[in-house]
Nucleic acid binder design. Structure first.
Lengths: 341, 341
DNA sequence: CTGAAAGCGCTAACAC
DNA sequence: GTGTTAGCGCTTTCAG
C-alpha cells in the first residue's frame, strides 16, 4: 500500500501551484483558470488517484461534513433502525457521514456524548428518541445546529419532527366509517403519551365530523400490549351494544383484540372489523386475517430531520423553531369489512 | 457562545509553553514535568474548559479515534440494531466514535462507502452483514484494519465473528433430550445458508452423541417463515410415527408449527414440545405457551468485533486471521415438556 | 490567471 | 524540566 498522494503531488505533476489545484478541485466559484490548466490538473489528480484529506480540510474550513446522531436506544425497537437508516441515507446523499451514539437514555452519558460530538466538530446533530414523546434537550446543543427527531423538545427552540398521530387516527377511523361502521370502539393506551392523546383526538374529530355522537363507553384504556388489547376488547364486547369495529392504539393491542374476538367466536372481518397502528413487521402482516393498520413514518422522519438539519447548517443559523408532522399512511389489509347486519 | 479555547490559551494562562501542555494533557509516558507545573496546567485547562481539538490532533497523529461500520441493511431486521449497539457501546467505551454507513447490499455503494471511510481516515472498519453468510469483502479494506461481523469472509484474511449455530442447535436438542424425547424432528430452512447447515450439524451430532440413530424422515426442509414452519410441522405430523418434539430452524417456523399443532389438537408442551431459534422479541415471548428458543448473540458479536478491531489497530497490524464462534444461549420458556406416554 | 505564503490546532523532535 | 519550532494537508488571501 503506497502512500496516499497529497495535493502537493498533484500540483507537481500538473506543473502548477497547490492553490490552483485546490481551486480547481473544489470548483471554486469566481475563479478563472484556463481550461487547459484545469484539464491538466484534473488528469493529474485522476492519474494519482488523489482524494483530498477531509481532516486537513476540516482543520482549515471548520466544517467536517459529519453529523452526530444521538439516540436513546437504537437496539430494542425495530423502528429505530428505520429512523437511523433514513437519517443515514439522507446524510450520505448530501456527502455527510453520520456519527452514531447511543445513550441508553442515561442523562450523564448523554451529556458526555454531546460533548464528544461537539469536540469532534460535527456540523450538526440529530437528537432522537425512539418513540414520540416530550424531551428536554441538553443545553450544550445550543452551540450547534440541531434537530429533534421523533420527540417534542420542551426547551430551546429547534425544529423537530413527529408522526402525525392525529391524522393517522383519522385515516384509520375514516376507513372504518367508509366501510359503514357507526359504532367504533377505541382501545387506547393508558399511559399519557403524545401518541395516545393525538390518536384519541383524531378518533374524536373524525367521528364528530361524521356527526356521530361521542360515546365515552367506547373508549377504553389499557396497557399498550397484547394483554392490554385483550382486556380492552373484552370490555368493549361486554358493552350493552357492542361496537362493530375497534380501532386499536397499536398492533400489539390489536393482536390481543384478535385473541379476544376468537374466544367469543367473533370472526374478523365479518363480525368485527379492527384496525391497528404501527404496522409492525412481525405482527400486522402475519396475523390472520392480515391487519389493516397505520404505518409510522420512521424512515421519512429520519430523512426529513437531516434535510432540515442541512438547511440549518447551510443557511442562516437563526431559524424560527418549527415542528413538522409527518403523515402516517393507512395500510389496507384484510381486517376491515362492512358491519354485520 | 464564545470561541473554544486553544492549547495556546491554556499555555498562556499557565505561563508555560504549548508543548508542556500537550505533554501533560496527553499523559505522555516518559515525560517528567514538575508536579506543580502539571497542576497549574491542569487547573488552567479546567478553568478555560479546554478540550483538545481532535481534528488538529488527527492531522498530526494520523489516528482519528473513529471506526467505520459498514452494514448492508441496518433497518429491516431487529437484530441489526443489537449488533450496532454492541459495536457502538464497545467503541464508546474505548473512546472511539462510530461512523455508520448503510449500503443496502449494493456493491457500488459499498465501494463508495469504504472509500469515503478511508478518506476520512478511520482507524479501522467493521464490515457487517445482517445475517450470517459468506461474503467477499471489498479489497480496498486491505489498506486498513478490518473485522467482519456476522459473516465469513471468502477472501482476504481478517478476523470475523459469527454465531455458533452448531452449539446453539446442540443446546436446543440437548434440552429436548433431557426432557426425555427420543424422536425429535428438525424443521429446517431449505436455503443453503451457513446457519442452516450449522444447525443441522448440531442436531445430528447431538443425536449421535446420545446414540440415537439418525432418521432422515425427521429432517424436513421448507421456507424459513411461518408458512414454511406450518408445512414442515404438517409433514412431520403425517409421519408413521410422529416426533414428540420439533426443533425449528427459527422462531417464525416455530410459530407456524404452533398453528399446525393447534389444528391437530396437539397441545404444547403436553402432546408436543417445540424449540425455536433466534429469540425474536415479538414472537418467542408472545406465543402461548412462550417459546423455548436459542438466542442469537448479536450484541455480543458487535462488542467482540470492535474489541478485536481495537487490538488490530493498537498491536502489530499483521495478525493471522481467525474466526470466532459466539455462543448462542438457550432461552428456556414453556414449550418443552416430557414426551407424551 | 497563477503561485507563494500564512495559518487552522496540535504533537513531537530538539534545543536550552 | 520546559520552551521553540517544524510540520500534518489543506484553503485562502494576496502579490505577481
Amino acid at each position: 500500500m503506497m502512500q496516499k498522494p497529497r495535493i502537493k503531488d498533484v500540483a507537481a505533476r500538473a506543473g502548477v501551484g497547490v492553490s490552483t489545484v485546490s481551486v480547481v478541485l473544489n470548483n471554486v466559484e469566481g475563479a478563472r483558470v484556463s481550461p487547459e490548466t484545469r484539464e491538466r490538473i484534473l488528469s493529474a489528480a485522476r492519474a494519482l488517484g488523489y482524494t483530498s484529506n477531509p481532516i486537513a480540510r476540516s482543520l482549515r474550513t471548520r466544517r467536517t461534513q459529519t453529523i452526530g446522531f444521538v439516540g436513546d436506544d437504537i437496539a430494542t425497537t425495530p423502528f429505530a433502525g428505520r429512523m437511523i437508516q433514513g437519517a443515514q441515507d439522507a446524510a450520505w446523499q448530501a456527502g455527510y457521514l453520520l456519527f452514531l451514539v447511543n445513550t441508553g437514555g442515561e442523562h450523564a452519558l448523554e451529556r458526555h456524548a454531546v460533548r464528544a460530538l461537539l469536540d469532534r466538530r460535527v456540523d450538526g446533530v440529530i437528537y432522537a428518541t425512539m418513540y414520540h414523546r416530550h424531551v428536554e434537550i441538553p443545553e450544550m446543543l445550543g452551540d450547534v445546529s440541531t434537530v429533534v427527531l421523533d420527540a417534542c423538545p420542551t426547551n430551546g427552540s429547534v425544529p423537530y419532527v413527529v408522526p402525525d398521530e392525529r391524522g393517522g387516527a383519522a385515516a384509520a377511523v375514516g376507513e372504518l366509517l367508509r366501510a359503514g361502521h357507526r359504532r367504533i370502539g377505541f382501545a387506547t393506551e393508558s399511559l399519557e403519551v403524545p401518541a395516545a392523546s393525538g390518536r384519541l383526538a383524531g378518533y374524536h374529530e373524525t367521528l364528530a365530523a361524521a356527526r356521530i355522537p361521542a360515546d365515552p363507553e367506547l373508549v377504553v384504556a389499557e396497557h399498550g400490549d397484547t394483554t392490554g388489547g385483550y382486556r380492552a376488547a373484552t370490555r368493549l364486547f361486554d358493552l350493552g351494544e357492542r361496537p362493530t369495529a375497534i380501532f386499536c392504539y397499536n398492533d400489539r393491542m390489536a393482536m390481543g383484540c384478535y385473541r379476544a374476538a376468537a374466544e367469543r367466536g367473533l370472526r374478523i372481518p365479518y363480525d368485527l372489523s379492527v384496525v391497528g397502528y404501527d404496522d409492525q413487521d412481525l405482527i400486522a402482516p402475519e396475523l390472520s386475517p392480515a391487519l389493516t393498520t397505520v404505518a409510522l413514518p420512521h424512515y421519512e422522519m429520519g430523512t426529513w430531520a437531516v434535510r432540515r438539519l442541512l438547511e440549518l447548517i447551510r443557511d442562516d443559523p437563526e431559524q424560527s423553531a418549527q415542528g413538522h408532522l409527518m403523515p402516517c399512511p393507512l395500510v389496507r389489509r384484510d381486517s376491515v369489512g362492512p358491519p354485520p347486519r
